[in-house]
Design a protein around this nucleic acid. Structure first.
Lengths: 362, 362
DNA sequence: CGTAGGTTTGGAAACGTTTCCACCATGGCG
DNA sequence: CGCCATGGTGGAAACGTTTCCAAACCTACG
């Protein structure tokens, strides 16, 4: 508990009987030094237990050797894994990771970026609510701070590590269509604040339309609805003729599955369910989840790699989207009552809870 | 892309026509200033878009307003959630979070702490392989850096936020015993590097012994074994008479469940399975997982709270363990062939893969 | 009108580094 | 023997902030 006074390079120099400049040169191997003084300095370092102050260094060199990372939440394993990927890419490079979570709040994430910038981070890896109109992000660019996005679709002038949400969602629509599903729904938890969700719906919608299928119902759920099977089932049941659901993430897909089952529907016989993300646990379920499989960790690694390039002085170069694969699970099958066509009877779509969102046009 | 030169408080002072000391006082409200000059300074700040450099501040005040956090991996949602909890507790306090992952490597985690200390963190929140014999942790204490542990059981002189692994595991043994299970096994993934796992086995073992039950088999699995249902089933099948498995975490429990099912056993009729952690998804399974429910996020919050107290200058005070609850799922039931007693026929325990570990004595 | 007491103010030192530059040997070469 | 390169060395400035301290200014009272 004895607060030993901090040991600085000055102490080392004094102990070694040399000037601080010399000590600095020895320790950084950044200039000439006689073998003798080198030895004395190294001994002094060991004796005193000296280690550099990153702060002093940062102040002088104006490079903090720190990158900032902002994600909505670490409670969502998709983001947690992405950060893990960033971390892996950073390990051994001397860079450290400063982390911040916005909790899906579009004001908090701007503030967080400002905080990170005050810490003089050398680069920024970001997933936020609305990057395209974030003042803080614009500020970062003005100040010449390299920025690398994660999960977002490409935006003017920013490089992003992403999967093509639009295309992936089209693939889901294709699978549904090929199996003969007509009446489908897209369920999302935070549609309004997630460009990912919006692009997924857009792709899903576009492909349905291209195939002449009814417009898929768009349903934005509250946390409560998603977590209460009874409520969730009521919502599903209200969509007459529904045979297939595309959930915006795997947790939601599992919740849907469970709600359907509790309501007496069998999956996939009475309802097909497809998720998004490909979280590992989906595979282990008794009825393995059909889903779009992505690799959040690889995404984080790519974002970090892009950031490195930027920090080396490169221009932002947009890499192609990371691949996704359709994981064939057991939650997807032909609709039970195939061929029935009651499109006229109950008008479709009944867009529950739906709002006017800008949908990217395919 | 124009690298605007950084704006410092000097620029603000010049623009406002005052000294830097005055500008500093105005911006920090740390001393007197006339209304007039206050106005000029504030205008200058707006015009120039000034914001403080945390580095300059840190250097001068020797407080970096940063806390370091080391966990094994963010890919494990238990740790990710704990970090999320830390993050939440930190939000709004002005502290930022510097993160590092050891990937369960006992050398890497020491190095990581050294790196964090070089960054002059004001406090440390840590989950590591062997805190009781970590040189870096000892160093941190010598330097007077407040340290708060997470997940670990109490260690001399460090405060820790934890659940009582030993007690929780005893509870599992009690449930097994009450239902009439005799031959049980404990499955773990990283027994050697996890004091949590070891304490869980110890508690499980102690209660089994106290009830006169056979010693539970201790099985340390490799990643491959855990992820390959066939291999896993072979291991389970090799334990003749086994009726109940306690898995060291929920993912493992789900894997066991799946392996058992693929091998033709029904859960819970032929095999009862109980997990640990209480990850949210366990609830959503068709057969909800019986498990020890803990709250990693609360754990992270408590660790952060303890760290705050320490940073205020308090003594390390060990709080009581956070509560756990036994979540009654559908994976636990009476053994099918109750009352059979072939303890003599096949000697028990057949401790596959088991090693000599120090077990805490209850 | 002088001075004590208060309020504002700004210069300068300090925090821990790195790096520029000047200085001093030393040794080789003309 | 003198000159210049060369290698080793250390003083000092700079990075952005806060804070100590002294100076300057104002007010009010005797």
């Amino acid at each position: 508990m004895t607060h030993r006074p901090k040991i600085t390079i000055k102490d080392v120099a004094r102990e070694a009987g040399c000037g601080v400049a010399t000590a600095s040169r020895v320790l950084n191997k950044s200039g000439p030094a006689s073998a003798e003084v080198r030895g004395r300095v190294e001994k002094a370092v060991r004796d005193l237990g000296f280690s550099f102050s990153a702060i002093g260094r940062a102040l002088q060199s104006s490079r903090s050797m720190t990158v900032g990372c902002l994600v909505p939440s670490l409670a969502n394993p998709v983001f947690a894994e992405a950060v893990q990927g960033v971390q892996e890419a950073l390990a051994g490079t001397g860079y450290q990771l400063l982390i911040s979570c916005s909790n899906y709040d579009g004001t908090a994430d701007n503030d967080a970026i400002a905080m990170l910038m005050a810490k003089e981070i050398d680069g920024l890896i970001v997933t936020m609510v609305a990057p395209e109109r974030s003042a803080a992000l614009k500020m970062a660019r003005q100040r010449g701070i390299p920025v690398s996005l994660m999960f977002h679709d490409p935006i003017d002038g920013f490089a992003t590590a992403h999967v093509d949400n639009f295309e992936a969602a089209r693939e889901v629509a294709r699978r549904f269509g090929d199996l003969g599903h007509r009446r489908t729904a897209f369920l999302a938890l935070r549609f309004a604040t997630s460009d990912r969700s919006r692009n997924r719906y857009a792709g899903f919608h576009a492909e349905c339309r291209a195939r002449g299928l009814p417009t898929p119902a768009l349903i934005e759920l509250s946390e409560t609805e998603a977590n209460t099977p009874e409520l969730l089932f009521d919502i599903l049941a209200s969509l007459s003729g529904l045979t297939a659901v595309f959930a915006s993430n795997d947790f939601l897909a599992i919740a849907v599955q469970r709600a359907a089952r509790l309501g007496g529907w069998r999956v996939p016989d009475d309802l097909s369910v497809v998720g998004f993300d490909g979280i590992g646990i989906g595979r282990l379920l008794d009825v393995p989840l059909a889903t779009i499989e992505t690799a959040p960790e690889a995404l984080g690694q790519q974002a970090a790699q892009t950031l490195f390039d930027l920090m080396q002085g490169g221009m932002p170069v947009q890499r192609p989207p990371l691949p996704f694969t359709f994981r064939v699970g057991a939650t997807l099958a032909h609709p039970r009552t195939e061929g029935r066509d009651d499109d006229q009877v109950a008008p479709w779509p009944p867009s529950v809870h739906s709002l006017d969102y800008d949908l990217k046009q395919g």
